[in-house]
Design a protein around this nucleic acid. Sequence first.
DNA 1: CTGAAAGCGCTTACAG
DNA 2: CTGAAAGCGCTTACAG
Lengths: 340, 340
Amino acid sequence: MVTLKQIAEELGISITTVSKALKEYPDVSKKTRKLVRETASMLNYKPNSFAVNLRTRESKTIGLIIPVIVHHFFSSVIKGIIEQAEKKGYLVIILQSNESYELEKKQVDLLLSKRVDGILISLANGTADFKHLNDVIENETPLVMFDKIAKMVKCSKVIIDDRKASYKATQHLIDIGCKRIAHFRGPLLPQNSIDRFLGYKKALLDNGLEYDSSLVYICECGDMSFEEGKLNAQKLLKEHKDVDGIFINTDLVAIGAMTEFMKQGVRIPEDISIVGFSNWFMASVISPSLTTINQPGLEMGINAFKLLYKEIKKKKKNSDFSFKELVLDTDLVIRESTKN
Amino acid sequence: MVTLKQIAEELGISITTVSKALKEYPDVSKKTRKLVRETASMLNYKPNSFAVNLRTRESKTIGLIIPVIVHHFFSSVIKGIIEQAEKKGYLVIILQSNESYELEKKQVDLLLSKRVDGILISLANGTADFKHLNDVIENETPLVMFDKIAKMVKCSKVIIDDRKASYKATQHLIDIGCKRIAHFRGPLLPQNSIDRFLGYKKALLDNGLEYDSSLVYICECGDMSFEEGKLNAQKLLKEHKDVDGIFINTDLVAIGAMTEFMKQGVRIPEDISIVGFSNWFMASVISPSLTTINQPGLEMGINAFKLLYKEIKKKKKNSDFSFKELVLDTDLVIRESTKN
DNA sequence: CTGAAAGCGCTTACAG
DNA sequence: CTGAAAGCGCTTACAG
């Protein structure tokens, strides 16, 4: 590998001058600069990034921890982050927490010891303790949370208004005439699962409908989402034959439920209307197609990186920085599963 | 940030000894070692990886270039790679080429200048020149290609036998009685698109069926796959009403085609049987569900990393290393779109 | 405009 | 068993 020293020797000048010439320092004569640049490109010189990192104390690399990768929404987020990062000259190390708090903790530690310039994270469902996140902040490493966040942690965040979105979804079911509306919710912990439930409940009450907790079914929303949808649909058919609409926490669970309903001869939307959440590509191609809330994954990724980038820049200059909480718009995509 | 120097000063010993104690060198007294370890953990010492990289000339980081991320097959590969890498203490930088040769070239260069310990790549559809890959090899950076590979490049590879898989798919159509079988193929360049076409053709000929090139339709298989499927289905219905089976290069295109057929009242599988390729999760939940070739993404990722890891180890020890080409098994998943 | 020198924080061959 | 010293390849404050 070619080093500055070799270029310097080749030209009989000092390493200092070579370094400066390559970095556009103004105090190098044009002639020298040209010579250095030519020699560098001739020898195919590439700065040793290990040395640069050590000197500059930054690696132009950020870390991303995400609960699952094989997931339409999250892979869209990843795409947004990587593309934006590349534009600004940053690379992205990706880690998957598998919805495990323990793993997430280890991975945060790993990224910290790798000295990434910043960390982007969407929390695992099981994460209830936030010490590892506060460690990041104490360590002065910029941190931005997105989608699955912890309200308590003091950092920038990019989210959607889950409560508003699920209110909209439930309102739509009410508008098309549903009277008895069930909810398949996510796990008890993550904020967005809670918020979606609250939006559902509020929509019912605001419209003078009774809130019946026995109509709320819980899903873990892990690898078994599709099966959970089926199972809950079975249970629901046994326990509450009068239900005519369901707002479901996630498209994949919704698709599982629809599969089960159709198998049992329950017609969608004639007998039961269904609204999902996320707008996976799949939702548009199944039959009947699924009404759902569009969750802007790409935008979330892009904005999460942008916030992180700003913080990195500010911190570098030691200038003031205040956290931002960005709330992205969602919209209801009406399809066949709720036609009236 | 705590450094070795600070620990050394704290204990009144040399940096050398501290370093050795922390790294389990045998020539340090038990007492000293214990003292050093205690102090290190008390001060929450974390080695500065920038300095370690510079000294050891390795970063324990590898690069991954992939055509698209938001894609069931590729995101499964990513998952396999990351998990395996983490087990061996490696982190993964992910870049998306967007099926662009130009971007891919830049990204290879970027990874090389970042001095990653190895590179994993699945080629963009447009990649026909392999200089950038040979640069990697010349640079002595271990390289493993997977899925979309270049036969010409001398490195380890993980692939499936596309020809065999598509032969199997076509044979299945023939076995259930199809006489006039079309093929929606991928772009002209990538090897797997070529191989899938050849497997289709061979199956026809081996079974005494005529090969008719006008029954072969091309898709770019980019972001527009679903629409391409629809369009090709339209064309096919106009041009070849007698077709009773189609083998389609990719599930997403197949699902687009199915959507169009159903819209036009063509029954699947009664009028036309369809086989896809990849076994996206979606294939199992649409209706009729799609017969397809299961492409083992996770296994491919795991094996690709394992091969890369072996090569990294060998190169470090300067021992001999020979390239391996791993061919993973695929199987035909028979579903409703081809019932007879 | 040029360059000698210090230093980033480690690792390791070598001397004692 | 311990440590002084060299060196990885850069960057940059400082002197001239």
